[in-house]
Design a protein around this nucleic acid. Sequence first.
DNA 1: TTCCTTATTGATAACGATTCTCAATTTCAT
DNA 2: ATGAAATTGAGAATCGTTATCAATAAGGAA
Lengths: 142, 142
Amino acid sequence: METTEMDQIRSRLEDHGYRLTPQRMRIVEAVLAEEDKHLSADDIYTILRENHPEIGIATVYRTLEILRELGIVNQLTFEEGVSRYEYSAREHHHHLVCLKCGKVIEFSNDELERLEQKLARKYDFQIVGHHLKLYGYCSLCQ
Amino acid sequence: METTEMDQIRSRLEDHGYRLTPQRMRIVEAVLAEEDKHLSADDIYTILRENHPEIGIATVYRTLEILRELGIVNQLTFEEGVSRYEYSAREHHHHLVCLKCGKVIEFSNDELERLEQKLARKYDFQIVGHHLKLYGYCSLCQ
DNA sequence: TTCCTTATTGATAACGATTCTCAATTTCAT
DNA sequence: ATGAAATTGAGAATCGTTATCAATAAGGAA
């Protein structure tokens, strides 16, 4: 038998004394389904309301907090006053953010992986994710 | 005569139709004085209240928004629900953030400067700042 | 100067994201 | 089954930030 992503997540939760309840499973599914998006707690709540209107917004926040602490999701902030979340196992990527119009361009970079290894050793950190933001002015706002 | 940092900031403001009012000057002074800190709007408001209790919190927010848009300060968010600001002309640095205890370790890195140049050309971005955050678990929280 | 237009301000209300409270329910280990 | 602990939903509370608005200050033209 194979180990699914959900199985792995269940183990990770249970190893830390948490239970994978039906509500938490629905929330994880939403995050996995929208892997390429940056979802806010409210985005997830809205998605779930369609088929699972019984799940409350507080549960969404509580679950995301657990997933974040366990490194299952990355919490991203874009200076807009809302936290956004992405499944952390997806390909790493970074952002160019325009200070004027707020436009965000994503990009990937391999050099950062190496840098990460170096810093992990230097500071005795177990690194599970990273996020580079470059600030500036896009071609239209210069 | 020499050009002070405040002169440069005044020019930058006036070039964009903003005035360097006494209130704004006090706020800029506070940011310059605490160059090595990450100050929240409320931190600045508290500092100013000692000698300038007439300055309102709304003015602090409005001024920081202008300074941010002009790239004079960097706006940083550490997933704590508060925006923090630092004088952008200070030496660039980055952060290792512990997902468990929230501990933040600063570090500098030269390779990122080169990467920045490359991306600026590729996406026609005028880059004025950057911020790399690495997430993980510190030595005590692993 | 004086006038006029515009920018800026402080106080406070409003907003919105997130967290807290708490009683009810579910889960797990025994 | 049973008891302890974890989890839940609803709504209240909190808190950072933004919007409103009348009053004030600043800069340019005459």
